[in-house]
């Protein structure tokens, strides 16, 4: 496998093993799409089942959701800048943009947790109705992914600092970039089919 090196490609694609890891991650994202599609399907089925509890209009906090959305979409943009800097070989700029990405992600997470606490506070907990069960699990799964991504990216940043920009660390950064953009895409669907739909329907 080590013989399979192609230096004309970007750093993260140079070794045969890295190319396989990246393809493998794309396939993993395919599985993630199936996972979130199922959760969206469950939400679509249960979203009207309030069981006498609060409806979506009763609990929605559109201003906070807008801020969350802007934070997460911006973080996806800064993540793209990080990869851009990686391609130019600028390790410090790469780390800087990664850290900014994670701070934006953490901000998103902070607001989402507050949103959850607020919901529970006004009597809209996971146990209240089928609608709320599916809402909490869909948002919670996305939030757990963001949390996991932050922890994972911190490990990769440590490796970047320790080892510099090698074909292995570059591949790790690239893969986490894919993951981060994917979470952003999922959020766009959540924003549309959970919040916007909840606002108007």
């Amino acid at each position: 496998m080590s013989a399979n090196v192609n230096t004309s490609l970007p750093l993260e694609y140079q070794s045969g093993q890295s190319r396989m890891n990246i393809l493998g991650f794309w396939i993993f994202l395919g599985a993630e799409i199936a996972l979130f599609a199922t959760l969206f399907g469950v939400y679509a089925v249960l979203s009207g089942r309030y069981a006498g509890g609060p409806t979506h209009q009763d609990i929605i906090m559109i201003r906070e959701v807008m801020i969350q959305t802007i934070l997460l979409l911006t973080s996806s943009f800064t993540c793209g800048l990080a990869i851009f800097e990686m391609r130019r070989g600028n390790k410090n700029e790469l780390i800087m943009w990664l850290v900014i990405t994670l701070l934006l992600g953490a901000g998103f997470l902070y607001m989402e947790i507050n949103e959850f606490i607020h919901y529970v506070h006004i009597g809209a907990s996971m146990q209240t109705s089928a609608f709320l069960s599916s809402l909490f699990v869909l948002l919670g799964t996305h939030g757990a992914h963001v949390t996991f991504g932050i922890g994972w990216a911190i490990l990769v940043i440590i490796q970047l600092i320790k080892r510099g920009l090698t074909s292995v660390t570059a591949r790790k950064v690239f893969i986490i970039g894919l993951y981060w953009h994917f979470l952003d895409v999922v959020w766009i669907f959540i924003f549309t089919f959970v919040y916007l739909k909840g606002l108007v329907l």
Binding site: V45, L46, S129, S133, V137
Partner: peptide, 24 residues
């Protein structure tokens, strides 16, 4: 997902598949 929702229903009292609480 199905198993996770089952776990939530059984362990944490959610209402995905239950008869009460609007589950299906």
């Amino acid at each position: 997902v199905a198993l996770a929702l089952m776990t939530f229903d059984r362990l944490f009292g959610t209402h995905f598949f239950t008869v009460s609480g609007g589950g299906m």
